[in-house]
């Protein structure tokens, strides 16, 4: 029976779809943790306590200097032998991506906070707000606008980076694609069709986000 590429693609869509769901799940968890952690991390980076600045700066440099794939392998090989714990691949992937995402979003938040005029902090303090109130009611609401476009582009980078988790055994988009290819090895063109489809899928997920981020940025910087 002669099968065309379209047939193969349609038949394998449910399985590829499962992979896409996994990629989206990993990315969503990572985005939630990175956002929550990143806002705190960014606020801490603007602290006036030198040891706090030192600690957060070290954390940032550690995640900026060591490539994310290295971190994934570190957790994949390292956690079981250093701590004797076996973490499911999915969990350790989300953990690593979140730790990295916190540093990335933290930098965005820090940049936005520091771009606010100093008078805002001074005025807030002079009417007797404590540090938490200052952040909650004065600084963060103003910084949000400057934060959102770059934060969305961090999201697209998180989604793209989640592809690396296939290399430490997470069953996401690429892995499910590989499984389809292996099962259809008799069909000669399977590899190019499936990898081509995955290529398009990534683009379809990421492009709208980055286009939206650019639109917001253009609108808000005027």
């Amino acid at each position: 029976m002669e099968r065309t590429g379209i047939d193969l693609l349609i038949h394998s869509l449910p399985e590829l779809g499962k992979g896409v769901v996994q990629t989206v799940l990993i990315s969503l968890y990572t985005i939630i943790f990175s956002l929550a952690g990143g806002i705190m991390f960014g606020a801490l980076r603007t602290s006036r306590l030198w040891w706090l600045r030192f600690l957060t700066r070290s954390y940032l440099e550690l995640f900026r200097s060591i490539p994310i794939l290295v971190w994934l392998f570190f957790f994949f090989f390292g956690l079981p032998i250093f701590f004797g714990i076996n973490v499911p691949a999915f969990t350790s992937a989300v953990l690593v991506l979140s730790l990295w995402g916190i540093s990335e979003i933290g930098e965005v938040v820090r940049g936005a906070l520091q771009s606010l005029p100093k008078g805002q902090t001074e005025a807030g303090k002079s009417i007797g707000l404590n540090t938490f109130q200052l952040f909650r009611y004065v600084l963060l609401p103003q910084a949000v606008r400057r934060m959102i476009p770059p934060t969305i582009s961090v999201f697209t980078r998180i989604i793209m980076t989640s592809s690396l988790t296939v290399l430490v055994g997470v069953t996401e988009m690429i892995k499910s694609g590989q499984q389809v290819i292996e099962r259809n090895y008799t069909y000669g063109h399977a590899a190019i069709i499936i990898y081509g489809a995955l290529f398009v899928f990534y683009f379809l997920i990421c492009y709208p986000l980055s286009a939206y981020s650019r639109r917001l940025e253009r609108r808000w910087t005027q």
Binding site: T161, L164, I192, F199
Partner: peptide, 23 residues
């Protein structure tokens, strides 16, 4: 520019390294 910035390097590599040989 848009395609390069919105697809992961890994899938670009796999497409070239495993995909192209099939044609």
């Amino acid at each position: 520019v848009e395609v390069a910035r919105n697809t992961p390097l890994l899938i670009q590599l796999f497409f070239l390294y495993y995909g192209l040989p099939s044609i």
